[in-house]
Simulated assay, not measured.
Amino acid sequence: MAKTPIAGTVYFKVDGKQYTIAGELTAQMDNVEREGVAGLSGVAGFNEKPIVPYIEFDCYQTSDTDMDTMASVVDATVTAEFVNGKTAILSNAWFCGPREVKGSNGEFTARFEGKKGIWE
């Protein structure tokens, strides 16, 4: 039986430009959130409200990381390609600040939100 990787390597791109990931990456592609509703007679159903999908990751500020360009991103396609073959795709995505770089290791956290998130 062949072993299939579950996690580890991730490639992050904004409109095709790849960025260097330092550590964690979180992809939340849900477009709605549901919450159960119960009354005295039992469960009545659920409430549903829209939520903003996002990809957030720790990035290195390398010599080729243009933070001003990254911060100006609006209406982009943002992808996170996981080693297990799954890809998180944000459509009409924008950068969310702030940009706080840690001097001790050159890392910063970047977050992109979008109008629609899907898994492929």
Rank of each mutant, 00 (worst) to 15 (best):
I6E: 13
D66T: 01
F95S: 01
S72F: 03
Y60T: 14
Y54F: 15
R111Q: 08
A88F: 12
T87V: 10
E107K: 15
N84Y: 10
G114S: 10
R34Q: 08
M1Q: 06
T77A: 04
K17W: 05
E107H: 13
E33W: 05
F57C: 15
G117K: 09
D68C: 02
Q18Y: 06
T62N: 13
K115C: 03
G23L: 05
R34V: 08
E107V: 15
E33Q: 10
G97P: 06
S41D: 05
E48C: 12
Q18I: 07
Y60S: 13
S104F: 14
I89D: 03
F82N: 02
D66N: 09
T69W: 07
F82Y: 09
E120V: 09
A44D: 08
G114L: 04
Q61E: 15
A22W: 00
V73R: 04
E120P: 10
L40F: 06
Y19Q: 03
I21K: 07
A27Y: 00
D64I: 12
K13L: 10
F12Y: 01
A44H: 09
G45Q: 04
S41A: 06
P50R: 15
K49M: 12
E113N: 10
M29K: 00
V52K: 14
A22Y: 04
E100I: 15
K116R: 08
I51H: 13
F46Y: 12
